[in-house]
Computed example of a mutant assay.
Amino acid sequence: MANSSPLTNWLTNYIEDADSDLGSLQVSLEGKPVRIILKSILEVRDKDNYTAVRLAVLRDHPEVLGLLLGGMRGEADKLLFEMVEGVTALYRAAQQGYTACINILIASVSPQRRLQLVLERDGGGWTAVTWAAVYGKTESVKALLHPFLPEQRHDILKTQSNILRTAIHNAACCGHTETLESLVDCLPANKLVTLLSMKDAIKHTPLELAESMKHHSAAELLRRKERAATQETILESYKQIDALKEENHQQAKALEEAHHKIIEVHEQSRQWAEVLMNRQDNMQKMLDQLQIYLRRAEPTDVDGDQEIEDYL
């Protein structure tokens, strides 16, 4: 049996009453340990297994949702990832186009898990972005993708359902042209070209799906966006090639200069070697001449011996 409390029952009634005064909830929390009371509210469920957070989302009461989650950031992750009736609270907000609730739900998850929340898939492999795409909720798509970097948006939009369809596939299949444009415009050209070439389980690209369902405006949008993205990707490739050529040219120029420097140093070394060899030759010649001079300067006893022989 699901738990309930007077506080939760009161809050449920408050949420269901669109004319309630938010100040009454704020006053009820004054002077009390807010974090403790909020945590108790978050954990209690009604007879349908709904928490106060889910009820606030279903009734589109972002002011209540913000009050409930505002002091619980990082501590409500388990609740926000919880599947009830096969979906998270974020799915419901995306499906209904409750953008203010979407912003609060994403901001209330610990930063390192925000992308994971948006990437969470239901039993059919749909993400919150897929739900928004199917129901044509353009503002939901923008709210779900805006907090993330282009690379992370690519990770979200390349996620495929159980029949291998992306959010772009589903928006194209349903003919939601405005939503489709929001999806394709949030990606850089090279990433978009890749996504538009992805095929579902029946081997259809998003463009082929739009054409088969006779959604002419969606098909025309995809053709136009694909042409522009392809051209931009090609131009960017040429720029990268030119940049590589310039880089290679600079490297070749540096190598040539280094080569000339090596030749110059080698030539200087050769000249110094010649100088040293010439000096060595000169020194050898000087030594030879010195030896000759010394031999000539040595005293000989030949004349003295002859004189002795003559005397005898």
Score class of each variant (00 low, 15 high):
56 A>K: 04
69 L>S: 01
84 V>D: 05
64 V>S: 07
48 D>A: 13
46 D>K: 11
100 A>K: 15
61 H>Y: 15
71 G>P: 02
86 G>R: 00
61 H>V: 05
56 A>Y: 11
58 L>W: 13
85 E>D: 15
65 L>R: 08
73 R>P: 00
91 Y>E: 06
90 L>P: 00
89 A>W: 05
42 L>E: 06
91 Y>T: 11
69 L>F: 08
88 T>L: 12
54 R>N: 02
95 Q>S: 14
46 D>E: 11
88 T>N: 10
88 T>Q: 09
55 L>S: 01
62 P>I: 08
78 K>C: 10
96 Q>L: 13
91 Y>K: 12
60 D>W: 08
90 L>H: 00
87 V>N: 13
73 R>I: 09
58 L>H: 10
82 E>I: 03
92 R>G: 09
91 Y>N: 07
86 G>E: 03
98 Y>C: 13
59 R>H: 15
53 V>C: 11
65 L>Q: 02
90 L>R: 00
75 E>C: 08
83 M>W: 13
53 V>D: 00
94 A>F: 05
86 G>T: 05
91 Y>M: 14
69 L>V: 02
91 Y>A: 06
41 I>N: 04
70 G>P: 01
86 G>P: 03
67 L>C: 04
57 V>M: 09
86 G>K: 01
49 N>L: 11
91 Y>I: 07
98 Y>I: 03
39 K>P: 01
82 E>C: 12
62 P>A: 07
48 D>L: 09
42 L>A: 14
74 G>K: 08
79 L>Y: 08
97 G>Q: 07
77 D>S: 02
89 A>L: 12
41 I>Y: 04
73 R>M: 12
57 V>G: 06
100 A>F: 07
80 L>Q: 01
54 R>K: 12
67 L>F: 13
49 N>Y: 12
52 A>P: 00
56 A>M: 10
71 G>I: 06
39 K>E: 06
80 L>Y: 10
43 E>I: 05
75 E>L: 09
58 L>D: 06
96 Q>K: 15
51 T>H: 04
100 A>E: 14
56 A>D: 05
90 L>D: 00
97 G>A: 05
90 L>K: 01
45 R>I: 06
49 N>I: 05
72 M>K: 06
39 K>R: 13
44 V>L: 02
76 A>Q: 07
77 D>M: 02
45 R>D: 07
99 T>E: 09
69 L>C: 10
73 R>G: 04
44 V>M: 03
67 L>H: 04
55 L>F: 06
49 N>W: 13
71 G>C: 08
59 R>E: 13
70 G>E: 12
71 G>D: 13
63 E>I: 09
55 L>Q: 03
45 R>H: 11
86 G>Y: 02
